[in-house]
């Protein structure tokens, strides 16, 4: 049975923990808002890019198209780009992404493919190191980055493109958590190379059909498509980074909210226990005094 002093100490320490988790929750909420803002601000660019790519994709000739679009014709070597957070204490966020990537990696290995992994963010590398450590070819660190910029995405994209040009992989897939809401983040796999272009819907077709024939391309379609595909890699990675940043803060916020609530419950339980114990001690002392007096 813990003594009264022990109980008092426990209560004090849980209270301190609750203060910390509460503070972390509020910080995460503030950061989440900023992350969401930048994700929203980045959306127009990606949307226009998608629209132009979709339109070009229909027009451009298939022969001699960029390998970024049609692939290398093989799917032997897979590159998994696993994007996670730099920090923990955000619930299952990092684990969920790693789990998805690990499942895919193991499936590919079982099918006899070669798997290479590029990790972005420290936590993913730590998670995957144990069983897939030999497959990690590169670790990209974003630890010093305060505000994600496009240049961060560009750096990663350049690495990926350089590897692709050197023929180091055939298929590249991007793993990140899509931000659904504060409580729901969905780990997602997105195929980067060969690019999966958005299909234009029938309505778009009809709309484009009227004006399409007169669209001028300078230089020709294939050249623009090739150029845009390269740029699109960076755009997609940037999108992934931003979604991930928002998801991370969302996950941390709900994790810290839970922690704060748990701490509150624990404090209540401990307080009840403390009061009971105190009362038991008083009763025991009274009995001792009374029985002592009776004995006289």
């Amino acid at each position: 049975m813990p003594s009264l002093k022990d109980l008092r100490n426990r209560i004090a320490s849980v209270k301190a923990t609750r203060k910390i988790t509460k503070a972390m929750q509020m910080v995460a909420a503030a950061k989440l808002r900023r992350a969401q803002e930048s994700a929203t601000a980045a959306r127009p660019y990606a949307e226009r890019m998608d629209a132009v790519l979709a339109a070009l994709n229909q027009r451009a000739s298939r022969e001699g198209a960029s390998p970024l679009l049609v692939g290398t014709g093989k799917d032997q070597v897979h590159l998994l780009i696993v994007m996670t957070a730099e920090r923990g204490l955000c619930g299952g966020f990092n684990n969920n992404i790693s789990k998805l990537a690990r499942a895919d990696a193991q499936r590919l290995i079982a099918a006899g493919k070669t798997v290479k992994i590029l990790t972005v963010g420290r936590k993913g590398a730590d998670n995957l190191r144990r069983d897939l450590g030999r497959n990690i070819v590169e670790r990209h660190d974003l630890r010093g980055v305060r505000q994600l910029g496009f240049s961060n995405a560009e750096e990663i994209a350049n690495k990926v493109l350089a590897m692709f040009e050197a023929g180091e992989f055939d298929v590249a897939t991007l793993y990140f958590a899509e931000f659904k809401s504060v409580i729901a983040q969905k780990p997602t796999a997105l195929q980067l190379i060969p690019a999966k272009l958005p299909e234009t819907s029938a309505a778009d077709d009809a709309k484009a059909g009227a004006g399409q024939s007169v669209v001028d391309y300078e230089p020709d379609e294939d050249a623009i498509l090739g150029y845009l595909l390269t740029r699109n890699i960076a755009t997609q990675i940037f999108r992934g980074l931003l979604e991930n940043a928002a998801s991370e803060q969302g996950a941390r916020m709900s994790a810290m909210d839970n922690a704060t609530r748990n701490a509150g419950e624990m404090i209540n339980k401990l307080t009840v226990k403390y009061n009971r114990q105190r009362q038991a001690n008083i009763t025991k002392e009274l009995i001792e005094i009374i029985s002592g007096a009776e004995a006289l």
Partner: peptide, 17 residues
């Protein structure tokens, strides 16, 4: 990419680097 151009209202559809 293939020379400077000035876009005025009502320009025909064009995509250019």
């Amino acid at each position: 990419a293939e020379g400077d151009m000035t876009i005025l209202p009502g320009h025909s559809p064009l995509i250019s680097t």
